[in-house]
């Protein structure tokens, strides 16, 4: 029976490793339904994934090592009580050298892990290290509320380019709900706010997450590396409809993005009168 238990304790780590091994092929790994598949959809996300894998390799090695040691110890300890084996257990209070080794070595590894991560963190969060593209200002104000994302874009100026985003709502502003658009391949910044309780802005495919804290306007930047629809959801418990905050982030080319803003302008100014002139003849008239 004791050998059964030794085996029992050895089978589960093997099983665990096996499950982790097949996980990517079974779809139990990073989200894969986005435009980039299982790969992170932003350069920063890729770096985060790299760090994840680095830690994964280190911890897997540790896991395997300790479990093998545990298994060895168990089998040996089980054999020690076999019939006729009357020898006493090894009388040892420990080893100073071993203690020093297994303190210093993990300490170095851990410190390495910590220091190695700083760069990515700084780029993600420290405003001085934000990509220069974001210095032009935010593209939209994303306001989380129970239970949806309300987004305010600055309107288009007379030159057809988006106006700067003002802290206060402007008559020219454009609004959408649960539908954030951004230009692909360009670092864009949004201002994250909440109207009520705490929410969290989570783009799983881009590995971006930032809480929206009541009373704070938080800048968040991201850069989608491929155009397409990405998931946007809430990651901080915000009440009963927490799971309902389903939205999308659409990464698209600059032209498409402007077209989207133009369409938004059009539909937001829709006055219900059927248009008599032929469609598709946009008149950029300032003669109002």
């Amino acid at each position: 029976m004791k050998r059964f238990w030794c085996l029992f304790f050895m089978i589960w780590p093997v099983l665990a490793l096996y499950v982790c091994w097949i996980a990517p092929s079974m779809g139990w790994w990073f989200p894969f339904t986005g435009p980039t598949g299982m790969k992170a959809a932003s350069p920063l996300g890729e770096r985060i994934d790299d760090l994840f894998y680095m830690i994964l390799y280190i911890t897997t090695a540790t896991f395997v090592g300790t479990q093998i040691a545990l298994g060895y110890v168990l089998f040996k300890g089980a054999a020690a009580t076999d019939e006729g084996n009357t020898e006493k257990a090894w009388y040892s209070h420990g080893s100073h050298n071993l203690e020093v080794i297994w303190t210093i070595v993990p300490a170095c590894v851990l410190l390495f892990i910590a220091l190695y991560q700083m760069d990515v963190w700084a780029q993600y969060r420290v405003k001085d290290s934000f990509p220069s593209e974001t210095k032009q200002g935010a593209i939209a104000e994303v306001t989380a509320r129970q239970f949806e994302w309300r987004i305010r874009y600055p309107g288009l100026g007379p030159d057809g380019k988006p106006l700067p985003l003002m802290p206060e709502p402007q008559p020219t502003d454009l609004y959408t709900v649960n539908d954030l658009h951004a230009v692909v391949g360009k670092a864009v910044m949004i201002i994250l706010e909440t109207q009520d309780v705490q929410h969290s802005f989570f783009l799983p495919e881009l590995r971006v997450k930032q809480d929206a804290v009541p009373g704070l306007d938080i800048p968040v930047w991201f850069k989608a590396s491929k155009s397409g629809d990405y998931t946007l959801l809430c990651a901080e418990l915000c009440g009963w409809g927490h799971y309902k905050m389903k939205a999308r982030m659409v990464a698209e080319t600059e032209d498409k993005y402007l077209e989207f803003l133009q369409n938004l302008t059009k539909s937001q100014n829709y006055d219900g009168v059927p248009e008599t002139p032929a469609e598709g003849a946009p008149v950029a008239s300032a003669a109002e």
Binding site: M1, K2, W5, C6, T66, A69, L70, V73, L74, K76, G77, A78, A80, T81, K88, A89, W90, S92, G94, S95, L98, E99, W102, T103, P106
Partner: peptide
């Protein structure tokens, strides 16, 4: 350190399952 020490404790013991 604690984990290593626990494994060390079992190392060479007469384990009672």
């Amino acid at each position: 350190v604690k984990v290593f020490n626990w494994i060390g404790t079992m190392w060479g013991g007469r384990l009672v399952f």
